[in-house]
Design a protein around this nucleic acid. Structure first.
Length: 432
DNA sequence: CTAGCCTTGAAA
DNA sequence: TTTCAAGGCTAG
């Protein structure tokens, strides 16, 4: 959904734009499209388009081309199987829980918009009006643990998924349908999308060879996946914690093995560890889905100063590259800040407003936030404040981070931080 | 055939 | 008992 529009937009029928009268056959539609869809499916109607099958469907023209209207019904996600073959009236069907969740999601979004006085896309700025370093990263980290406890297959939900228990076993009570969906309707526009009915058809010729429904795979706004795709992708890229730990340990042992005379203080050791952790973060950023598309030119935009954090990260990346070049020295050799560098995408969420490609970066932030919101609404339906709470944790983390930064800087000034420390390089870059 | 209003009835 | 998304009815 596009959050930048007014919330009233939610009240418009996705087929014709008329006023929505409730959930019908899978999503919020107007009364007329509900009726149209019902008539079409119940009576197994097949229309033809006299034009080129792409007629505009709006409130005034929806009567003109039933073919394109029905096509649009399917495209936006109206469900053939919600039309009952037995014509049973009343009651609830298996879509109930889905409607409920969709409603909750919409409400949460609205509440959020209202509560903050502005639109969701600007939410990142509540978190930190000054800087957004690793905002996305920390967000992902904070939910990583939660995600791990979830069932392994979070593919897009269909109503059938609501009927399964938390461990994938169908719950007995739900396996017998109270109403029979209308089977056998086949709409030629989506030949590849035909799926088999999940239920036996008690009423029509039982177990026909090809009892097919057809509808597009997309299910806009009404059936958010268990775990949003964005989050899944990010999770795939999450560095393996054990690996990171092992690397840090190896690095420390390597130093130890060199038989250095000055033994590192605890603080010194921690700096080393932080340094290595920083590498992991930069590495993560380099492969992160959002950043891959971004190409950021520093200093060439003539649009204010480049992000100092970006500069710092540029250094980090150059150091990383020099390591990769095979000289194998794990000691940091920071290079001078380049006047103009092609920044890998990794840095773009850092300080969106200074980046050339800030539209993409903003978009990434929006996506991440939307995904997080969706996730929290789905998985913490009873904790309506979860999303905000998580965002608040981020502010706390940032506050801590800034304290640590101050501390580190003072330590550095008094000469207590080991030289060749990437951390300090970044600190310098930030402060210049 | 359309679309607004009415009736139903299982789930919440 | 209330809800609300199914199906039904019917004037236009």
């Amino acid at each position: 959904m596009d959050y930048s529009y007014d919330e009233d937009l939610d009240e418009l029928c996705p087929v014709c734009g008329d006023k929505v009268s409730g959930y019908h056959y899978g999503l919020l539609t107007c009364e007329s499209c509900k009726g149209f869809f019902k008539r079409t499916v119940q009576n197994n109607k097949h229309y033809t388009c006299t034009e080129s099958q792409n007629c505009k469907i709006d409130k005034t023209q929806r009567k003109r081309c039933p073919y394109c209207r029905f096509q649009k019904c399917l495209t936006v996600g109206m469900r053939l199987e919600a039309v009952r073959a037995d014509r049973m009236r009343g009651g609830r069907n298996k879509f109930g829980p889905m409607y409920k969740r969709d409603r909750a999601l919409k409400q949460q979004k609205k509440a959020l918009i209202r509560a903050n006085g502005f639109k969701l896309e600007t939410v990142p700025q509540i978190v930190s009006p000054v800087q957004n370093d690793y905002g996305l990263s920390s967000t992902i980290h904070s939910i990583h643990a939660m995600a791990k406890t979830l069932p392994p297959n979070p593919a897009a939900l269909t109503p059938a998924d609501y009927e399964r228990g938390p461990y994938g076993t169908p719950s007995l009570a739900m396996t017998v349908p109270s109403h029979t969906p209308l089977a056998g309707y086949h709409y030629p526009s989506f030949p590849n999308r035909a799926i088999k009915s999940e239920y036996p058809d008690h009423y029509s010729a039982a177990h026909e060879a090809v009892p097919t429904y057809a509808y597009p795979e997309t299910y806009p706004s009404s059936s958010p996946p268990d775990i949003p795709e964005v989050i899944l992708k990010l999770l795939q890229l999450e560095p393996d914690e054990a690996q990171v730990k092992a690397r840090i340990l190896a690095c420390l042992q390597q130093d130890q093995g060199k038989g250095r005379h000055e033994k590192l203080s605890t603080f010194g050791l921690m700096c080393k560890m932080a340094d290595q952790t920083l590498f992991s973060i930069v590495e993560w950023a380099r492969s992160c889905i959002f950043f891959k598309e971004l190409e950021v030119g520093l200093g060439s935009g003539g649009r204010g100063k480049p992000s100092t954090q970006a500069v710092a990260l540029t250094r980090a990346l150059r150091v990383l590259r020099s390591q990769e070049d095979g000289r194998g020295n794990s000691t940091v050799r920071a290079e001078p800040v380049p006047g103009s560098a092609s920044l890998p995408p990794s840095l773009s969420l850092v300080d969106v407003k200074y980046l050339e490609n800030h539209t993409l970066a903003k978009d990434a932030q929006e996506k991440a936030n939307a995904a997080l919101l969706e996730y929290t609404v789905c998985h913490y339906p009873h904790c309506t404040d979860k999303f905000r709470q998580l965002l608040l944790r981020l502010t706390e983390v940032r506050a801590l981070s800034m304290q640590a930064e101050e501390y580190l800087y003072h330590k550095h000034l008094s000469g207590e931080v080991p030289c060749n420390n990437l951390l300090i390089e970044m600190l310098h870059a930030k402060r210049t």
